[in-house]
Write a protein that binds this DNA or RNA. Structure first.
Length: 292
DNA sequence: TGCCAGGCCTTCC
DNA sequence: GGAAGGCATGGC
């Protein structure tokens, strides 16, 4: 039980940021709308609970832990990167990106915790977002540290050490289905030093990707999501069924069959370059918002 | 009831 | 190295 500290408020002025789009575009699984307050979300980031509220270009943050709060928030939401410049560049790519951006401007790519993102995206395989969120929440509740904030309980995502003795059967009880053995294997690969999660930042993208692909339950799509959403590699372009559809229709005029992933990757690399991952997120979110 | 969900693993050519 | 089938589980 972490001792509750007096809450404090942090206010950050930030342009080119939309809290709702950023948290609801599908890159993260642990934020919830706070229904009693307008445009406000509750989430667990690193070692603390955050309540984040947006009013125009001001972000208000409350937390149980105010140590280095601004640094944690700025890093997590990628506030130190100039997205006005990025959006100004990618809007010139083509008419499809421009169209998507007209609905999705303000998405930022989060810098999420590596281990949590790794396990979350292993769970994401052949799964749906509500169930992924439910499983991540259950694993946190069973094995993570509890924090009380504003009269509610929250749980940190557990560390590999905290999952040391968890069995495959116990993962299954968290609702992860057949992915139980993948999580078990990955946790122990990390505990045994097969993948050193403290040296992520030092590795180049291709090396890191290869190491991720050596983990059970991590294929190309999951690896790319981890690289994009927790390793600050905006050049990677995760291709799931939705991106495959949107790219096939928009860029290859292919409405019946699907384009080969290899061709889509090639197109993204050549046309979107170092911003491929950001473009992907705008195309993905724009398409999903139109469908649902 | 049957199909699908932000794929991946295994098996088999 | 590419194609096909299986996979837990809940929502529709």
């Amino acid at each position: 039980m972490i001792v509750l500290r007096e809450k404090e408020e942090l206010c950050i002025d930030i342009d080119c940021f939309n809290l709702k789009y950023t948290l609801e575009c599908g890159q993260c699984f642990r934020w919830e709308v706070k229904s009693s307050e307008e445009n406000t979300y509750m989430g667990v980031v690193k070692d603390r609970v955050l309540k984040v509220k947006q009013k125009e270009n001001k972000i208000f943050v409350y937390s149980n832990n105010t140590d280095s709060l601004e640094e944690v928030v700025r890093n997590y939401f990628d506030f130190n990167t100039n997205y006005e410049d990025i959006e100004a560049k990618i809007i010139e790519f083509d008419s499809h990106v421009k169209e998507a951006l007209s609905n999705t401007s303000g998405i930022r790519i989060l810098n999420q915790d590596f281990f949590e993102t790794l396990i979350s995206y292993i769970i994401s395989a052949n799964n749906n977002i509500p169930r992924i969120s439910k499983s991540v929440k259950e694993i946190s509740k069973r094995y993570g540290k509890r924090i009380c904030f504003e009269d509610k309980e929250y749980y940190l995502f557990p560390t590999p050490e905290e999952l040391k003795d968890v069995t495959i059967e116990e993962y299954r009880k968290c609702g992860v289905g057949f992915r139980d053995k993948y999580i078990y294997s990955t946790v122990h690969d990390i505990l045994n030093g097969k993948l050193d999660i403290n040296k992520i930042k030092e590795k180049d993208t291709l090396t890191l990707r290869e190491e991720l692909l050596n983990l059970k339950g991590v294929g190309p799509k999951v690896a790319d999501c981890i690289l994009l959403f927790s390793c600050n590699r905006s050049e990677v372009f995760p291709i799931d069924v939705w991106v495959e559809r949107v790219m096939s229709v928009l860029y290859f005029k292919e409405t019946k069959g699907k384009m080969k992933k290899k061709d889509i990757l090639e197109y993204a690399k050549n046309n979107f370059g170092n911003y491929a991952g950001i473009v992907q997120q705008h195309l993905f979110y724009n398409m999903r918002e139109k469908m649902f």
